[in-house]
Structure formats: C-alpha cells, structure tokens
Design a protein around this nucleic acid. Sequence first.
DNA 1: TATTGTTATACTCTATAACTATA
DNA 2: TATAGTTATAGAGTATAACAATA
Lengths: 172, 172
Amino acid sequence: MNPATTETQSQSQIQTSAYPPELASCRVLVLGKLGYAIKRQAIEELEAAGASLYDFSVLGVLAQGACEGQNALADVLQLDRSQLVGLLDGLEERGLIERRRDPSDRRRHNVMLTAAGARELERVREIVKRVEAEFLAPLSAEERKVLFDLARRALAHHDARFDTAAEIKLAS
Amino acid sequence: MNPATTETQSQSQIQTSAYPPELASCRVLVLGKLGYAIKRQAIEELEAAGASLYDFSVLGVLAQGACEGQNALADVLQLDRSQLVGLLDGLEERGLIERRRDPSDRRRHNVMLTAAGARELERVREIVKRVEAEFLAPLSAEERKVLFDLARRALAHHDARFDTAAEIKLAS
DNA sequence: TATTGTTATACTCTATAACTATA
DNA sequence: TATAGTTATAGAGTATAACAATA
C-alpha cells in the first residue's frame, strides 16, 4: 500500500512517506497545515452534529447582543454580505436566530439570538472545545497555552479582530 | 468607512471591529486563521514573483533526488495525481524539472530537478523565508522557534510527513 | 443617488470519473 | 486485468455583479 515500504532504496530516491527537512521545517507549511487540519476536524465534527463553524461564529457574535443590521455582522465575520444571507436563512429556519426589520430604517434587518440559539451555542462550543483538546492532545496544558498566545499575538498583527489590546481599549 | 466608528454605541450592540472574547480565544479559529493568513501571504508574494507555493513544495522534494514515478510525488505532497499533472506541466515548460520515461516501465515518468530548477528553488526559498520573517515579526526569534516547535509537534500527530522521529528512523 | 438585503452569475479549487498506453 | 499518466467532468466554495426596496 505505502510506496515507501514497497520501493527499494537508493540514494537518489525520495522518501515518499515524509517531507524533506526543508519542507518539514518550513514555518509557512507547518502553520498553514496545522491551521487547516484543526479547522477541518472542527468542521467535520460540527457537520456530523448538524452544525457548522459558521454557526459557531455567528452565534458567538450574537451572544454578545443583538446586531444592528446584517452588514455589521458581515463586517465582524469578514464575510461577504451575500454569503451571510444563506447562513442566516439556515439559522433562522432552525429557530436559532431572529431577523427583525428595523422600524427606524426599514431596509435594515436587526439580528438576535433566540433562547434556542443560546442553547445551540453551548452545544457547538462543547464540540469545538473537544476538538481543540483532541487535536492538541500531544501538548501539555501549559504548551497549548503558549502555542495559543504566540499564535494570537502573531495573528493580531494582521487581523485586528484578534487584537486583545484594541478590545480592551474599545470596551473602556 | 469602518462601521464601528460611525455607529452609535449601546449596550446591546456588537463591537464590529473586534471578535467577542469567546471567538478571539478560540484555538480553532486563531490557529486556523493564522495558518490561512501566513499561507495566503506566501502565495501572494510568490505569485507576484511568478511562482507558487506548489512550486516550492515540488522543487523542495525533488531537491532530495529524482522521483521514481509521479505517483510517488503525489503521495508525498498528498496531491491528487491528476492535479499534479498540470503542476508538472508548468514546471517542465519553464525548464525547472524534467520528465523522463522509465525504460524499465514505459508507463512511468521519472521526475528530476534541472539546474535551472535548483536555482529557482533557491529563489522561492528566499521569498518564503522573507514572508515568514515579516509575518512573525511581532515575535522574538526565540518565540518564533517555540511557536514552530509546538505547532510541528501538534501537527505531526495528525500528519506523519511532519514527524521528525519517523524521519530519523527512516533515514537510519 | 446611496444603502440594505437579496438573488443571480461567474470563477477558482478540488474531487471524481473516464480514457490511453503500457504491463 | 491492473497500473501510470492524462484528460474531462462535476461539485463545493467563494467572489463579483445585478436587483428590489427603502432612504
């Protein structure tokens, strides 16, 4: 099955089951694939439970409070507003969110979490936490924290939504 | 421009420029987006230089030695072999690799790096390294190393190609 | 005329299936 | 019949453009 075990060895032959050191030590590839793999696993497990990572994000934002207009929501999630429509349609059909036309500007739909939506958030949150624990199992709790803190600091420089300092500033 | 600065504040309104703590502290999202962002930047800068991240991976594997059959290459890179065809076509047209029909099995194409391919690898390697340095600039050299080591250890549990232990075992 | 939400369209990746030539 | 490489097709996901309602 595995070519690496069936092929004969020679000095000019690649080791098909492992990356060469240059690629295995490439930060772009390692960080890229780690992120893709953990996200992929979360998506799969959420899908198996009838949810999605988008659901988690949308519900997570709405848990903070109602959202004045769908554009505001698209802005935080950095989704195209046309893509958000279908997402909200699904959540609304399942009774997890509610869209209400804004009386002061009838073009606008204010979006809010329902009680069922709050319960669903709890459910998907547990799934996400389980995936994180499973996926990062080879690391100790301390190591997981270090990995996360460094990753977040690096990310915050390129994506302001993850900037803790800004968060604190805005909240004050 | 930014909705967060133009909208009036109220207790039930989301902060559109920042994720709520639940999402900003979600490891799946942070690792997922960090990986995506650094990969994206590498792809863009490579594209601007007339190359791609695939080029880097293919050339990086072939730098180890010729590859007996395209399937072996598809196996290491975990690409579908039909996808690999177009990739190799491009590299061959640019004179960076060479496909030679295997005399002992004329179905097979052995793939090898040309001198120009080796030079191109050096060029793209520098671009990738520059992106890594730029992207992880907020971290110290020591922190970058810690981030990478933890990321690789976590990844190796799910993707054997990044398993350093296996690499050493196979090389002995 | 500009903006909000929506719908329609197009484009990029990727995954699958079919084809050829060799074995 | 099975395999290596190739080509063709289809699907998911995403980005762009047009549209109707309201301002």
